[in-house]
Write a protein that binds this DNA or RNA. Structure first.
Lengths: 225, 225
DNA sequence: CACGGAAACCGGACCTGAGTCCACTTTTCC
DNA sequence: GGAAAAGTGGACTCAGGTCCGGTTTCCGTG
């Protein structure tokens, strides 16, 4: 299928920061710094994201075709794919935007979610916040769902795993914290949360309580059997 | 890379028909119920599975198109899709066959994997067996990967969760066993195992040890905090 | 056993949407 | 001003999936 694309453009290296084209002159291509984005490219990227956001809100993520996005943005299909790589990439970009507030919440926000509270308290709050956030943007998450190849390399997901691992360590967890964190974060997989809610009819309360139990197990000392 | 598949012509008479909630047909023509599968349909199903198996072994699951399968089976494309619903369905059918021996192993086989051993012992063996099995057929698993909608309803996966939950209960686990089992089984997601192995370079030994730790945590008593 | 009709099945033309390609245009920088 | 780099757009390819007229199988009937 899609091997590595010979495209020079990777997935969105920068967030859609409107009109943040700082005039930097005489910049030598040192340190692998990305060269400034061209004006037309920036304009089109914003157009595309705007159009995509609008269409998704209007028709649901599943029913939005790439061509429709390109047309709505008055831009060629090639441009769309150049910017975002593929459909998944576009959805991921939208998702990244939707995740901003949530991410700020657990990275920088006030306790108990943010820094300042006890690690255990933060872990509990993190699970609850994540589950609620997922349920809010589930439509987009399911559309952006990375099939196998990317599922565990999506930035947001990697960040979650890292965050959980950090808190686990701070909470004094022992054992293979990395793997435990990965497993714990797996509980927060959008598709799983969706499945448990819709197919298995589990309540939000149960899902949150389940998270707390898993956290408790994760930080518990290991009794050598 | 290449999964060795058992002989294709002996596939189970049952196969998932994803397109509709079809009533299970039994073989006995009693009470005007259950029309059996037509002879030509059966013949073509076998042809298709045979051809698919061959092509997958030859070119890798990723590089096999549905049309190629249909052509190789000397059958129309419509027939292929009628039988298996979609590409995923076909891969799932192949996978189901590839899983047979593995499933027999932990359901009916000899201890420590099968019945007879202590639950904890069986849990440990189950993880190791699963990880090894996944790595063997990874090619097929990744191709058959159910994107979000089906990921948690694939028969093999559901069976694993159920099995783990049963063993956890037998081992005297307390708490929300269902959710813990689901999470534990999440560690055995093919895509995750593949990711940890290839992207993160984890050794088979570490993955197996990780499973054992998770099992230990899952059956540990819950200390009320 | 021949017959006949209904239901299941077949197959390949056709449609759709993702992703690619490349000749052409715009921007940037000197 | 001008060359090179970056970006553009839409025609094109390709694979998954649908549709429907024609065919085959099944089964009850005479």
């Amino acid at each position: 299928m899609t091997a590595q694309l010979p495209h020079p453009t990777q997935l969105p290296a920068e967030m859609p920061s409107p009109c943040s084209a700082e005039p930097r002159r005489n910049e030598l291509p040192v340190l692998g710094q990305a060269p400034r984005e061209r004006a037309d490219a920036a304009r089109n990227r914003i157009r595309l994201l705007d159009a995509a956001t609008q269409l998704v809100r209007e028709h649901g993520a599943q029913n939005v075709t790439m061509e429709a996005v390109a047309d709505a943005a008055c831009v060629g299909k090639g441009t769309l794919f150049r910017r975002f790589g593929d459909r998944e990439g576009l959805m991921l970009a939208l998702l990244e935007h939707a995740e901003e507030e949530y991410q700020r919440g657990y990275l920088l926000g006030p306790p108990p979610l943010g820094p300042g509270a006890e690690p255990l308290e933060r872990l509990d709050a993190f699970g609850a916040a994540t589950i609620r956030h997922l349920l809010c943007s589930m439509d987009l998450y399911l559309a952006a769902d990375a099939c196998a190849s990317r599922r565990y390399t999506v930035p947001g997901g990697v960040l979650r795993v890292t965050h959980v691992a950090m808190l686990l360590r701070q909470a004094g967890a022992v054992g293979d914290v990395e793997l435990v964190a990965q497993t714990l974060a797996g509980y927060l997989d959008p598709a799983l949360v969706n499945h448990l809610r819709t197919q298995r009819g589990m309540s939000l309360e149960r899902l949150e309580a389940g998270w707390r139990e898993l956290v408790a197990r994760a930080v518990a000392p290991l009794s050598p059997s």
